[in-house]
Simulated assay, not measured.
Amino acid sequence: MKAIVFDTFGGTEVLHEAQTEVPEPGPGQVRVRVQAAGVNPVDGKIRSGTMEAVFPTTLPAIPGGEIAGVVDAVGEGVDHLRAGDEVLGWSDTGAYAQYALATATVLALKPADLGWTHAAALPVASDGADRVLDLLDVAAEETLLIHGASGALGTIAVQLAVARGARVIGTAGPANQEYVTSLGATALVYGEGLVERVRALAPSGVDAVLDAAGKGALEDSITLRGGTDRIVTTADFRARELGVVFAEGPARRSAARLAELARQAADGTLAITVGATYPLTDAAKAQQASDAGHGRGKLVLTVG
């Protein structure tokens, strides 16, 4: 099968196309013929080697962990999925490939009205958003500040927080102000003078902060909170030195929750934005865009 592989850690130049063996599903697994794969910032961090302490990688490796595709083969002990089922979820063997193995219990059936690229954009961002909102214990009537509100995780986090009854202030670039507003947040441009602009919108203060941008907003967040309590970042590695929680624990990977959100995405209740798509052979370009930070939504590789 065709796959994207890296044999050593480094920049996007280490990614290359290779022919590899089609994997065989073991007990509890299925093989998925991949139609689309999500590109996440963590993919580039793993490729560069900076995540070795958290995600040890055996080389050579196929990047990615987020897939949407068609079940192609079923392993022993799997009785709720069968060949031909359209699914989305997390892969066990890397997502940048024509075929991937996945643990059957972390796959959700894809609604017919949900396209492949949008399906591949959902698992990681929705799981991360749910996990961080729970870490922050966001509740109705509270004010939540989200940095990077126009990104893949931010897009979902804004909507899920609003669904909880929270008021959301979302920072983003000038070109994404209307987009963030359309998600249900009060949009704000990031950068110099942020503390004053947030205080003008929330004179009583903010109750919690989610930093999904990693662009130096933690100091301002600490000022706004009057300390490090109820601040979580998914993107700024300076978190520990500043006394802020870095959300790095294992993903929950709930197939039931993913199925629920996939249904919402299919009927338009939950907005999923695909910022750009790339063919599998352009995986290096996709990771370059991800490493640089893109302004809106999710980057997705089209495979099928």
Rank of each mutant, 00 (worst) to 15 (best):
A139H: 04
R47I: 11
G227F: 13
A284W: 04
A200R: 06
L81E: 06
E192K: 15
T57H: 13
I222T: 11
E260Q: 13
G28W: 06
A125Q: 06
E66I: 15
K298F: 02
R263M: 13
F9H: 10
V206D: 00
Y278V: 12
E13P: 15
P25Q: 08
L224E: 02
L59W: 15
E141N: 13
E248V: 15
V71P: 00
P60D: 14
T103I: 11
S221D: 06
Q287S: 07
A108V: 03
S221C: 14
D43C: 12
A61H: 13
R164D: 01
T105S: 11
D282K: 06
A108T: 04
L258C: 10
A202E: 01
V168L: 04
R164S: 02
T105G: 07
E248F: 12
V87Y: 01
V168F: 00
E178M: 08
G165V: 04
L109G: 05
T57N: 13
Q19L: 15
E24C: 06
V34D: 05
G128W: 01
E21I: 12
L59S: 13
A283G: 08
L107F: 08
G193K: 07
A161F: 01
A108L: 05
K110D: 04
T8L: 14
R164V: 06
E76P: 03
A100L: 10
V87C: 04
T12R: 09
A112F: 08
P174R: 14
G249A: 14
T269M: 12
P123M: 05
V34F: 12
T57F: 13
R167S: 03
L242N: 07
Q264M: 15
A129Y: 00
G268K: 14
Y179S: 03
I156T: 00
A108C: 12
T281W: 05
V5C: 05
A265D: 06
T269S: 14
I62P: 02
Q288T: 08
A276P: 10
V74D: 03
A247S: 14
L183E: 00
T105Q: 07
D79M: 11
A157P: 01
E142Q: 15
D43E: 14
A108I: 04
A271Y: 03
S91L: 07
G297A: 10
M1Y: 06
T186G: 00
I272C: 09
L201P: 03
E66R: 08
D72L: 09
V158M: 00
L114V: 09
T273V: 12
Q35T: 13
A102N: 02
D220F: 03
V189Y: 01
A97I: 04
T223W: 12
Y179F: 14
V14H: 09
R252I: 11
I231N: 02
F6W: 07
L144Q: 01
G184Y: 00
R199H: 09
E17N: 13
L101G: 00
H16F: 11
A283M: 09
D134R: 10
